[in-house]
Design a protein around this nucleic acid. Structure first.
Length: 558
DNA sequence: GTAGGGTTAG
């Protein structure tokens, strides 16, 4: 009883005066130690035990794994096996959780054999743990096979399947599975919603996200901080910052994750000042920021050009909160310095930081070289990127872009030759948007869309109209040495322009247009969209890999 | 006594 209520001291005193101490009383005490997180105490008692049973082993294996001492947990499981004990469903689900935590696929497969041998091949709980393990280790297929072979499914099994697809990036499948789950008569719960909503964020399908928000309210899951955080993020990533704010303000259970989520949402929409204000309020409210909070905050600072503020927070993170900066935090600082034009400081930061660099941090500096047109540094930095990832098409393109903007066609063709030799292919730009719950997708110069001819002639008219309003195509961005007319044509067929043309043709006047893109939008499209938004009197919101841009611009400061 | 989830740099 004392153990159950976490009063370990009382439990220990009682145990010490007990005349007869058996396995059961010792097991209870071990669980007491584990309940309060005293792993050393539990281990000591365990080591001193004259006899043990399966429950004893289960207690320590599960205890260690619960506190993420996964390796220790797996070692204990091996010892258990050597001692001649057969694992039961409790042992196996704990051990599989440990494998998932370590992403240890091979050990996981061995445990799978053990599961089958011990007769738990069709067990509901063990089956979900097994599928979860496979999916966490990146083997979605094996995980799905386990779930599909289960004779009965419950909500947890469905959630495992859905979360596995979400975490492995199969967002469309997540939405399909969500419908199937409901059709099979299962009621989604807070965990289902977290996975499904994060897939909506990924796909930026606002319509679906809104429908799922309705389901959240219907099932009463809207009082869960986890669901709230995902909703905030979903609305932000789907382009509706105002709805993120509404969810956040209405929420009574917001925790540090929800606050971080809101800070990230502001950052994603370029609202640096609000992000900083919210962080300061969070501190005043006594909520402890974590590494992700700082990542979101530093990101917001770098995108809004708050260089000094960002550097200040970077120091605060370590000094006040004892959070060691990881490579992602350093990347934000490199971005912050790079955008501000301090290229040398930025490079020095990478070379002197105590954590190992990666392709991304060097790519960040490479983008800064492009913004500030520093071709010499760009060449050097591109080499560093390609050391980490020789197949990274974006870096070759960036480097070629810098050469093209200097009209140094010889260097451009050199870069293109290296790409050919190394068989590097440029990732095609794809934009998509949702109209009446249907997703339309466009690739550059795409002829696949049924309305491609109409789009083509509409784009021609639109470009002419834009030129009357001061649009000058920035042909320096085209990588090939073509004549100007060809360059303009190539620019006007960027996927985001095609998507916007399609939306203008197929939606009523005044409807906001939300376009998503798989790469960064180019500066020509940025200028072009601004002008389109003005002449067509439409709010246009473009999401690329990094952030949201809203047009007209003033919307950002509302 | 067991299983499934949240915010995040480019």
């Amino acid at each position: 009883m004392y153990c159950k209520f976490g009063n370990l001291q009382a439990a220990v005193s009682l145990y010490n005066v007990m005349v007869v101490k058996n396995v059961m009383s010792r097991n209870i005490l071990i669980n007491g130690y584990l309940l309060v997180g005293d792993l050393d105490g539990a281990r000591k008692l365990f080591d001193e035990m004259p006899e043990r049973n399966v429950a004893t082993w289960n207690a320590v294996v599960a205890g260690f794994i619960q506190f993420e001492y996964n390796e220790e947990g797996l070692c204990l499981f091996r010892e258990m096996h050597v001692s001649g004990f057969s694992p039961d469903d409790f042992t196996l689900s704990s051990v599989l959780r440990g494998c998932a935590g370590l992403k240890a696929l091979l050990v996981g497969r061995q445990v799978h054999c053990c599961v089958v041998k011990c007769g738990f091949g069709f067990h509901l709980v063990v089956g979900s743990s097994l599928a979860h393990m496979y999916m966490k280790c990146g083997s979605l297929e094996e995980g799905e096979r386990v779930i599909k072979s289960m004779p009965i499914r419950n909500v947890v099994a469905w959630n495992t399947l859905i979360a596995g697809n979400a975490q492995n990036g199969y967002s469309e499948s997540v939405l399909a599975l969500y419908c199937m789950m409901k059709m099979a008569g299962f009621r989604p719960d807070k965990i289902t919603f977290v996975s499904v909503l994060s897939s909506c964020s990924e796909l930026a399908t606002l319509g679906q996200g809104q429908q799922i928000h309705v389901d959240v309210i219907k099932t009463g899951a809207s009082s869960d901080a986890g669901v709230i955080s995902t909703l905030i993020s979903m609305y932000s990533r789907c382009g509706c910052l105002e709805d993120s704010i509404k969810v956040f303000l209405k929420c009574e259970v917001a925790d540090h994750v929800s606050w971080s989520s809101m800070i990230a949402a502001y950052g994603f929409h370029g609202r640096g000042v609000e992000a900083v204000e919210l962080f300061e309020k969070m501190e005043k409210e006594g909520l402890e920021p974590n590494d992700v909070t700082f990542l979101s905050l530093l990101y917001a600072c770098s995108h809004f050009g708050l260089k000094d503020k960002g550097l200040e927070f970077f120091k605060l993170m370590t000094k006040k909160y004892g959070i060691k900066p990881g490579v992602q935090h350093y990347t934000c600082i490199v971005d912050l310095l790079g955008r501000a034009g301090c290229l040398n400081e930025s490079e020095a930061m990478i070379r002197s930081m105590p954590v190992k660099g990666d392709a991304i941090i060097w790519k960040t500096l490479l983008s800064a070289c492009k913004i500030h047109k520093n071709a010499d540094m760009a060449r050097r930095v591109a080499e560093e990127v390609l050391k980490f990832d020789p197949q990274d098409s974006a870096s070759y393109v960036l480097l070629a872009n810098i050469h093209a903007s200097e009209k140094s066609w010889h260097s451009v063709s050199e870069v293109r030759k290296i790409m050919r030799d190394r068989r590097v292919k440029k990732e095609p730009g794809v934009s998509w948007l949702e109209i009446k719950n249907q997703v339309h997708q466009f690739c550059m110069s795409d002829k696949a869309h049924p309305q491609s001819e109409e789009i083509d002639s509409y784009l021609k008219e639109l470009t002419a109209e834009m030129k009357l309003h001061g649009y000058v195509p920035d042909t320096s961005l085209v990588l090939h040495d073509m004549d100007n007319e060809e360059k303009e044509c190539s620019l006007s067929h960027h996927s985001e322009k095609m998507a916007i043309a399609f939306a203008l043709m197929n939606t009523p006047a005044g409807t906001p247009i939300r376009v998503m893109k798989n790469l960064r939008i180019c500066s020509d499209c940025h200028v072009a969209i601004k002008i389109i938004s003005e002449i067509k009197n439409r709010e246009i919101i473009v999401r690329d890999t990094s952030r949201f841009s809203s047009f007209p611009k003033w919307k950002m400061f509302l």
